[in-house]
Each structure stands twice: as C-alpha cells, then as structure tokens.
C-alpha cells in the first residue's frame, strides 16, 4: 500500500514542533537540575556541619536538658572539646 509523502511544509512544522518540545524539556529540566544541585549542596553542607562538629553542642544540650541537668555554655563546651581533642594524637603524618 502506498503511503502519502508528508507535505514539505508539514515536515518543517514537525521539526519545529520537535525542537520546541525539546527546548521545553530542557527549560523544564533546568529547575529540576537546579533543585538537584541545591539538594546535593544542602546534603554536603549538612555533612560538613556534622564532620566539623558544629552540631555537637546542640546534641549535647538536648541530651543534658532531657536528663534534667544544667548544660554548660556553648563556649565552655567548645573549649572542653578542644582540650580533649588536642591532648592526644589527633593528626597523622
């Protein structure tokens, strides 16, 4: 069975529609990429906060308060952490 050849004009329109479709996909994808980067960045930042020990005081405070004891201040806690950390081998060759 013979199929009709599409009109040159409609072929052109088809390509245009495809291009528009791909452009839309790309532009729709941009926010998705942005949110992925933002999500990855926030995960990394949260990880660094944990590794650097920034959350240690809030964790300590929550624990001590739950036990009904008065917590030390953030500054006192920080100083005590440093004394403990640097009185033993903490960095390697």
């Amino acid at each position: 069975m013979r199929t009709e050849e599409p009109e040159p004009q409609s072929k052109h329109n088809q390509r245009r529609r495809l291009l528009v479709h791909y452009l839309q996909l790309a532009t729709n994808g941009l926010p998705l990429l942005g949110s992925l980067i933002a999500y990855g960045g926030s995960l990394l930042w949260a990880y660094l906060l944990e590794v650097s020990g920034e959350n240690d005081y809030s964790r300590y405070r929550a624990r001590v308060v739950a036990q009904g004891e008065p917590p030390v201040t953030a500054s006192e806690f920080y100083m005590a952490q440093l004394e403990r950390k640097y009185s033993r081998v903490s960095r390697c060759c």
Binding site: Y47, E50, V51, D56, R59, Y60, V64, Q81, R91, C92
Partner: peptide, 25 residues
C-alpha cells in the same frame, strides 16, 4: 555521654577518621 562517647553516623565517622589520618606523608 554526649561528649567522648557518641554513637555517630558511619559516614560522619568516616570523614572524621579520614581527615585525621590523611597527612603530608
């Protein structure tokens, strides 16, 4: 005790440990 002994996420301990062992050697 919230100070010295704290159960910690393994990836965080991994980061701590790697940062401590990685030196100029």
């Amino acid at each position: 005790d919230g100070r010295d002994f704290v159960p910690t996420n393994k990836w965080v301990v991994f980061g701590h440990h790697f940062a401590a062992i990685a030196g100029p050697g």
